[in-house]
Design a protein around this nucleic acid. Structure first.
Length: 295
DNA sequence: GGTAGACCTGGACGC
DNA sequence: GCGTCCAGGTCTACC
């Protein structure tokens, strides 16, 4: 079956897909030709479906395998609207960005939306997998989690959805360590899955909680394995840009951009984007660092 | 509040 | 093939 979902303009599916590395992580598959992607989702009803999401005038078109009930179709629409931020409004940021040469054209390029997962659980797990390791290892850990604990897509032996909290909560730390190579992150992921599965941690309500950034950050930092960098990253996914995800890359680019390549710390990174206030995360994320890509 | 050391994995490198 | 070094954030203990 086919769906067409409208987006608040300006919108560009390739821009969302390129917003960060999530599209490289299973169960996403990028479609280089169209600028869209495929994604395998495990719906709350238990059904595993594949979305083929492609650009469409005014939004996106979606091809779904199999037959869904009307309630499942509504669930899919809501999940895709969240994943792509279809209703997000960046007009205030765009007005400010036009005054900054390193951000000019953000509106014309429809930048700002950051590709998300259907559940905050998946985004938190994936964020934990990005910490203290190289990107290739992050992709490997994610692929291992999906292939070993995800539910299979009907009719396909090698394609799986991201594991639900229930599916992960049933394993043990030793298995996670050895079979998925999560290393010391295994107890963090397991504890998170168990708390979400038994209801002691209501993670998904944070997607639309109305909480301020400070309180949201406090809730995220309470999760084992989530520190300053990971919390700022997740806040960006939740549409809060007041904190900067300061990692080794941020230290490097700020060093070259404003300090002649001299080593800098968190304070210098914060100072560089202080004037952007509630938009500092977006300004950092969309800043034109292209001349530093090969340094 | 700030700092040091441990936590893991895998790639790069030297032998 | 083996051993060593290094990169990458967070946690915990300690001051």
């Amino acid at each position: 079956m086919n769906l067409t979902l409208p987006a608040r303009p300006p919108f560009s599916l390739p821009s969302v897909v390129r917003s960060h590395g999530w599209v490289q992580m299973a169960p996403y598959t990028a479609d280089e030709t169209s600028g869209g992607f495929d994604y395998i989702d495990h719906l709350p009803t238990g059904k595993v479906v594949r979305y083929r999401v492609r650009p469409d005038p005014g939004g996106v078109s979606v091809v779904l395998d199999g037959v869904l009930t009307p309630a499942e179709q509504d669930e899919v629409k809501a999940r895709l609207a969240w994943m792509l931020g279809l209703d997000q409004d960046f007009s205030e940021f765009y007005a400010l960005a036009e005054q900054e040469p390193k951000l000019q054209g953000a509106a014309a390029r429809a930048q700002g939306r950051i590709l998300r997962s259907p559940t905050l659980f998946e985004d938190v797990v994936k964020t934990i997998l990005t910490t203290n390791t190289l990107w290739a290892a992050t992709l490997r850990m994610d692929r291992n989690l999906v292939t070993q604990f995800g539910a299979p897509l009907l009719g396909y032996l090698t394609q799986y959805a991201f594991p639900t909290p229930d599916r992960l909560a049933g394993t043990d730390e030793a298995t996670l360590r050895t079979q998925t190579r999560l290393g010391y992150r295994a107890p963090y992921v397991l504890e998170l899955a168990q708390k979400v599965a038994d209801g002691s941690l209501e993670l998904e309500v944070l997607k639309d909680s109305g909480l301020g950034t400070v309180e949201l950050r406090k809730r995220l930092l309470a999760i084992k394995g989530i520190g300053d960098y990971a919390a700022a990253n997740l806040l960006m996914l939740l549409g809060h840009y007041d904190y900067l995800p300061v990692d080794s890359w941020a230290l490097k680019v700020v060093s070259y951009e404003w300090h002649a390549g001299q080593p800098v710390g968190r304070k210098e990174v914060e100072a560089a984007f202080e004037k952007w206030g509630a938009f500092k995360g977006l300004a950092y994320w969309l800043w034109d660092w292209s001349y530093l890509q090969n340094m």
